[in-house]
Design a protein around this nucleic acid. Structure first.
Lengths: 348, 348
DNA sequence: CTGAAAGCGCTTACAG
DNA sequence: CTGAAAGCGCTTACAG
């Protein structure tokens, strides 16, 4: 007899209970639940009824132990530059949303974990059978990052990452066409009559996403006989504070500029704050364009023109590609086209 | 012979492999890995070495099947009013961050799932042994919600929820002391010389969090011989658009007001936009205070005074309480004290 | 179309 | 302190 100290959960039904109730073997119950065609329609109906009556759910661990499939993916979210709580880049949170939805659509569960880029990664999700594969999300110094990717490949880990798609890169990546995005910005600013475009964000091979945005914008300027001026580039990582600091540095240098291309929306919003404090008007004195298409771009003052990344498409593609890898099917890196959303910060 | 079509993952090591290598029984390997004291120090060392050499990880499914513990919690995030992708309330995303961290700290994994409040919930995470318990996050019509909570209790599901802590409520809740937060706002506005305080947000038992904020503010006004004027209350759910619409409605009503207490930061930011469009200055003509303490409050223009909820404390408490329930230990509902962060939108 | 049986990789009484 | 053995709840060849 169980001690009824508190409302005890009644013991969970097993496939044995279902079998008994439906008058079939336990193997047949399993066949029905896995959707095997090898079951008589009548039998199937009896089993399904028993399943409903007892509110039976297949035990995930028993099933996974037998099939050697977890039915789960793991999302590793890197948050290196801003280790302070709750200050995750909102762009990655949009990605998290779309990845979660894509997982559900593909009938998989999603484990979420935050990682320091510097840490040993929880790549052991797969070794412990907790997940069939990994989705890596978050930027950081790519040079350090790449060797870890190579390590994952060497271990045979199934993974996809979000980020710059580069030649000869280990593993497969899904990323925004950052150069195309940068070109959209360059052409837009030129069409608005701007000539001296500053860039806030690291622009080196250590941060290939930002670098490609820079180069794309430069390419568009060159089409118009202009070019980016390295004296108007200031390093910044993707945070409001960093954007604020970078804009102040830019102003302090004393070179003239009439537009800022910020490598991310957060940087742009920090830059607007710095410019406003300094008595510069946006967009009258300086046009500003961000990158990412985060919700806050719409609410900033003035509303921010931004390059919108296709987060829904990205989530779906990340999940679908990873599931292909898990099934040992071929998959390849893909680049997604961004779009420009014009708002008041660049003259509307 | 395996077909070497592509780099095959070498077969995963099992505890048997470790046992063989360390020259002990498989049972002893298991004891070492579970930290049993019933192992000789020498033996332990040999086993640990073999574990390291073969990069062995305990198989989660085998372990969980045996122990009947998943070692995993599930987070159900409701997003009813705004089903459009990527527009999740940033406050909940902060919560997600802190919950993730708290889970890691307590040695548990976290499954994340988005749910429609109207749907059948994925309460079956526990029935299928995928998770030991549920964390419920997200507001919505509480009246509809409460019956679902009662249902979960009746089923013996282990869960905690974030939200208003009410008398006689089913299950346990962790929530902000919304009335105290409202009182902070009321006293602050009075101290700034404001007298006619409008409220943007539903204020009924259907939305007990907003309602308590309203009542708390009203209580503070009464201490000063004033009170909230129902004619200055406009319904709104927690979105920028809804805040914008509500502020326009408020203005259209034509009653004088010199302050707005917005039930959330998103509502406040929408309200600022509406006021600005209408030629009203913040804070000179109207002081505005939000609620939540989201990152965007700092970046809004003007920066938004807001009631900061303790998301780190909340995440930790949610996880710790749920784990107590899972272990059949007593746990109870708790209310967390918020703080007021004063910025320029209320006169600084 | 169905059942009996083996086995996935652990954990933990039980016996020594 | 250690090993042999049972068993967690499934899935899937195998035999009929």
């Amino acid at each position: 007899m169980q001690e009824p100290r508190r409302a005890k959960k009644k013991t969970k039904a097993t496939s044995m209970d279902i079998a008994h109730r439906a008058g079939v073997s336990q193997a047949t119950v399993s066949r029905v639940l896995r959707g095997s065609p090898l079951v008589n329609a009548e039998t199937r109906k009896r089993v399904e009824e028993a399943v409903r009556e007892l509110n039976y759910k297949v035990d995930r661990h028993a099933s996974s132990l037998r099939t050697q499939r977890a039915g789960t993916l793991a999302l590793l979210l890197f948050e290196d530059p801003t280790p302070d709580d709750s200050h995750i880049n909102p762009f990655f949170l949009s990605m998290l949303g779309s990845i979660t939805r894509a997982c559900a659509k593909h009938g998989h569960d999603l484990l979420v974990s935050f990682q320091q880029l510097s840490d040993d990664w929880h790549a052991d999700y797969e070794d412990s059978m907790k997940a069939d594969g990994l989705i890596l999300l978050g930027y950081g110094d790519y040079i350090a990052y790449e060797s870890k990717l190579a390590h994952l490949v060497a271990q045979g880990t199934h993974f996809v990452r979000w980020g710059a798609v580069l030649q000869g890169q280990p593993g497969i990546s899904i990323g925004c066409d950052n150069a195309a995005g940068g070109a959209l910005v360059g052409r837009h600013l030129i069409a608005r009559g701007r000539r001296k475009v500053a860039f806030l964000g690291d622009a080196s091979t250590h941060f290939p996403e930002f670098f490609a945005r820079y180069c794309g914008c430069d390419g568009a300027l060159r089409e118009a006989g202009l070019r980016m001026n390295p004296a108007l580039q200031v390093d910044a990582d993707s945070s409001e504070q960093s954007g604020y600091d970078a804009a102040r540095t830019l102003i302090a240098r004393g070179h003239a500029f009439d537009a800022i291309f910020a490598a991310s929306d957060l940087i742009a919003i920090g830059a607007i704050r710095a410019l406003t404090e300094h008595g510069l008007r946006v967009p009258d004195d300086v046009a500003i364009v961000g990158f990412d298409g985060t919700p806050m771009a719409r609410f900033s003052n003035p509303p921010l023109t931004t390059v919108v990344q296709d987060t829904s498409g990205a989530g779906e593609l990340l999940v679908a590609s990873l599931l292909r890898l898990v099934r040992d099917e071929p998959a390849e890196s893909v680049t997604l086209m961004p779009t420009l959303e014009v708002r008041a910060s660049s003259g509307g």
